[in-house]
Design a protein around this nucleic acid. Structure first.
Length: 206
DNA sequence: CTATTGATGGTC
DNA sequence: ACCATCAATAGG
């Protein structure tokens, strides 16, 4: 089923072609994908529920050598999807309560991904559910382990192209919650839209 | 405002 | 035992 996002964004006077991001978008360095995902539209359609938001915050996890990346633990049942083809969902369950949604990046064989940490609500987000944080946005969009490994060019969980966000509006800083990764925690692998209220960890987001 | 703590369960 | 989180709580 095709979904015409143009009609819905028309209400916000935003017009662009509703087109899924192609494989080539994802098959690039994770840092590039993380930066370029800012402003794109994450959509989850399950049954007759359509929920979508604009990506306002991401983090790159660049490979097995990156001690903050789950793939640094090697190839396991959980991390296997990271070694696979790009453009798939990597969803994991954390702290017994939350899910986190990632986009697999880089060519097959390179275990890298981009964590989506903040969404600006656009369509169908139930009132009272916030989207400023990786766990919260998964709850708001109904993303669970059921979506793990899903192809993001499909029809249930997918990402639509949208106008690029200019560099003047994008900020960079260290990733959140990865102090265990030593020097890798210091690297500025996190991207967010400046002053956007749907960015997580506001204290660290100036 | 910062710092700390508890909830809660998959993974290895 | 650890954890790519979050809300509640305590303290300055």
């Amino acid at each position: 089923m095709e979904i015409d996002l143009r009609a819905r964004f028309g209400q916000r006077r935003v017009s662009f072609a509703a087109v899924r991001l192609p494989l080539a978008f994802y098959r690039r360095p994770a840092l590039t994908v993380a930066r370029e995902l800012i402003g794109k539209i994450l959509v989850h359609q399950s049954g007759d529920e359509l929920r979508a938001g604009r990506i306002v915050e991401t983090e790159a996890y660049v490979g097995e050598h990156d001690l903050a990346c789950h793939a640094s633990k090697g190839r396991t049942r959980r991390t296997e999807v990271l070694f696979g083809p790009p453009g798939r969902a990597y969803v994991y369950f954390i702290y017994g309560m939350y899910h986190c949604f990632n986009v697999v990046a880089e060519p097959e064989g390179v275990a890298a991904a981009v964590l989506v940490r903040g969404l600006e609500p656009l369509i169908g987000i139930p009132s009272g559910l916030s989207t400023d944080g990786p766990g919260k946005l998964c709850r708001a969009l109904g993303i669970t382990l059921a979506q793990n490994r899903e192809d993001l060019r499909g029809t249930t969980l997918f990402i639509e192209d949208a106008p690029a966000v200019p560099s003047s509006r994008v900020r960079r800083g260290p990733r959140v919650g990865v102090d265990y990764a030593g020097r890798w925690a210091e690297r500025k692998y996190r991207f967010w839209i400046r002053d956007n209220p749907f960015v997580s960890a506001r204290r660290l987001s100036r």
